[in-house]
Simulated scan of single mutants.
Amino acid sequence: MSEKRAVHMKGIRNQILRTAEKLFLTQGYKTTTIRQIVQESGITSGSIYNIFEDKEHLFSALVDEFLTDAKARIDKVLADQPAENRMVGLLAMELYITEKNPVVRELMCAFHTSPFLMETVIKRHSALAEEVWAGRRHPRSARLSTAILLSEGAVSSYVISFDFSQKLDFAEIRRKVMFCILRNMGLEIRESNRLIQYMEENENLWLDLAGQVLNHSNETAEA
C-alpha cells in the first residue's frame, strides 16, 4: 500500500470512529446502527466493513482508544504516584462515570456482556496490574488475567445495580467492588483499604479525567 493510500485509509478509519463515537455517546450501543454511521459519516457501508468486521469490532476499537487515552491521562496526572495508585485511578474513572452517565452505563453493559469486548478490557487492565507487581519482592502476576476476569464480574454487578427497581447504596457497592478487585490481585487488606480511601478522596479528579476522555474528539478538533 502506497503512503498516500495509507494516509487516506487512516483518515477514513478515523472519520468512521469519530462518527460512531458521537452516536454511541449520545444514544448508546444498541440503538446505534451501521446504517446510521454511514448516513452521518458519508462513508459507504462497503468501506466501513472493509475496515471493521461488524459493529462489535468497531466498538472494540473505540473502547481500546478510550482505555489508551484514560491510561495516558492517569499516567500524566499521577506521574509521581506508585503503580497501584494509577491503577486505582483508572478503575475509579470507570466506576464514577458509570454512576453519573446513563449512556456510559449502557455502553458498559454492552462490553461486559460480550466476550470479545471483555477480552480487550481484561488485557488492558492486566497489563497495568502487572506494573503494580513489577517492583515488588514477591510478584503475583502469573494469574492476574484470571483475577481481572473475576474482578470485571464485580464491576458488571455494579453496572447492573443501577437498573434495579430498589435504590441501593452505590457508594458502598463501589467500595466493595474496588476492595474485591484489589484483593483479587493480591493486595493486603490494609493497603486495599488505603487505596479505597484514596479513591474516594479524589472523586472529582476521576470524574474530570473521565469527562476529558469522553470529549477527546472535541479537543482534537479544536487543536
Rank of each mutant, 00 (worst) to 15 (best):
E65C: 06
K71A: 09
E106V: 02
F111K: 06
H112D: 12
A92R: 00
D64M: 09
F111C: 08
G89A: 01
H57C: 08
Y96R: 00
L107K: 09
L107W: 10
L95P: 00
F116W: 15
T68F: 04
Y96M: 05
P115T: 00
F111L: 09
N85M: 11
E84A: 09
Y96F: 14
D80R: 15
A70V: 01
G89S: 00
L58I: 10
H57Y: 14
V103Y: 04
V77H: 06
E94P: 03
Y96V: 06
N101S: 10
K100A: 14
P102S: 01
T120M: 02
M108W: 10
K123H: 13
I74Q: 02
A72R: 11
P82G: 03
T68N: 12
E94V: 13
D69P: 01
D75P: 02
L67N: 09
N85Q: 15
V121H: 09
L78S: 07
A61P: 08
G89C: 00
D75S: 06
D75Y: 02
V63N: 02
L58T: 03
P115Q: 12
N85H: 15
E65L: 11
V63Y: 02
R105A: 05
L90F: 12
M118S: 13
A110C: 00
T120P: 03
D80I: 10
Q81K: 15
A61S: 14
T68P: 04
M87F: 15
V103S: 01
V104L: 07
A61F: 02
P82V: 08
R86F: 06
E119K: 14
E84I: 04
V104H: 05
G89D: 03
T120C: 04
